[in-house]
Structures are given as structure tokens and as C-alpha cells.
């Protein structure tokens, strides 16, 4: 009895989130690549975003960017700029645009598009080397993870 109620409640909750979420194909970028609206309709969780950025299995942002505040995570890369103080250089909408699809902000950038699902050449099934199973692909990060990452980046002030 208790269990049944709980299941219904989580179903409703799930549907609620899906309703508010902006799908990758529907994200509105302005001319400079910024995204004004939260992809989930809510604020992200900076602590969860920090984990996404440091994890090899998730954002793996530190493979290209160094962040002094994350010195507990080993091996930061040098391919992209140091992210210290990034919230002084960009506002929240701009950061959301960069994380979702940096190519709208920087033409031809090496930074991967984390919330994009089509338009790839020989897309693979994650890191297996085999062909992708679906078209569109699942995005590299979910809407929630993008918002969490943005929330964390907003804490990086000098």
C-alpha cells in the first residue's frame, strides 16, 4: 500500500521534470551562443556539477581545463583555458550556452558539444569503437547535469 503510493508519486514527479525539460533540439541560443532559460526549469546543484566536471565518466572537463579549486582531482589538462574566475568573464546564460554547445560561442572550437544529439560524422556507441545504436544519440550530459555544471561554474569567481 505504502509502496504503491510511492511509485505513483515518483511517476508524477518524473513526468513533471520531463515536462519542464528543454530537449537538445529545442534549446534556443542567441546570436552570441548564450542560452537564457534553464534547461530543467530549475537551478542546478553546484556540488553535483563539481562531480560531473571531475569525473572521467561524465563531463571529464578537467581533461582539457585546469581548475585550481579542484586540486583534489588529479591530472588537469592544458587544452582549454584555466577556468578560475570564469564567472567573472561570463554570465549564467553564456556559461549555459558554452557547456551545452560551445561551437555557437566559439566557431570551430575543440570543446565538445555536451547537449547535442545529431550531426556527427561516424558517431560511435560511447567508447566501444562500434557504430552508434541510436540516432539521435543520447547527449553527453543530461539537462540536469548541464544545469549542475553551470551552477558550479557560477561559483568560480576571483
Amino acid at each position: 500500500m505504502k509502496r504503491a503510493i510511492l511509485t505513483v508519486a515518483s511517476l508524477v514527479l518524473g513526468a513533471g521534470i520531463a515536462g519542464a525539460e528543454i530537449a537538445p533540439a529545442d534549446v534556443k541560443y542567441d546570436d552570441a551562443g548564450a542560452v537564457a532559460e534553464s534547461l530543467t526549469g530549475a537551478a542546478g546543484d553546484a556540488a553535483a556539477g563539481r562531480a560531473v566536471i571531475g569525473s572521467k565518466k561524465l563531463g571529464n572537463c578537467v581533461s582539457c581545463h585546469a581548475i585550481s579549486e579542484m586540486s583534489d582531482v588529479p591530472f588537469h589538462g592544458e587544452v582549454g583555458p584555466l577556468l578560475d574566475g570564469v564567472a567573472d568573464r561570463w554570465n549564467e546564460a553564456e556559461l549555459r550556452g558554452i557547456v551545452a554547445n560551445a561551437k555557437n560561442t566559439y566557431d570551430g572550437t575543440m570543446m565538445p558539444s555536451f547537449y547535442k544529439t545529431t550531426g556527427y560524422i561516424r558517431p560511435g556507441d560511447a567508447f566501444t569503437g562500434k557504430a552508434a545504436q541510436t540516432d539521435p544519440l543520447p547527449p553527453l550530459l543530461s539537462a540536469q547535469q548541464i544545469e549542475d555544471v553551470v551552477a558550479y561554474l557560477m561559483t568560480l569567481k576571483d
Partner: peptide, 25 residues
């Protein structure tokens, strides 16, 4: 010079534009 895969990276991205840089370890 073709940017393959979901990460859209070419050989040149790593080995021409970024040699001598660290990518993770």
C-alpha cells in the same frame, strides 16, 4: 582533418593544434 565521433575531434585537433599540451594525464 575530419572531426569524427560525438566528441568531434580530428587527428589535427590533438596532434597538430595541441601537441606538447596535457590532455588529462
Amino acid at each position: 582533418y575530419t572531426r569524427y565521433g560525438q566528441l568531434e575531434l580530428s587527428c589535427a585537433n590533438c596532434h597538430e593544434d595541441n601537441y606538447d599540451n596535457l590532455i588529462r594525464a
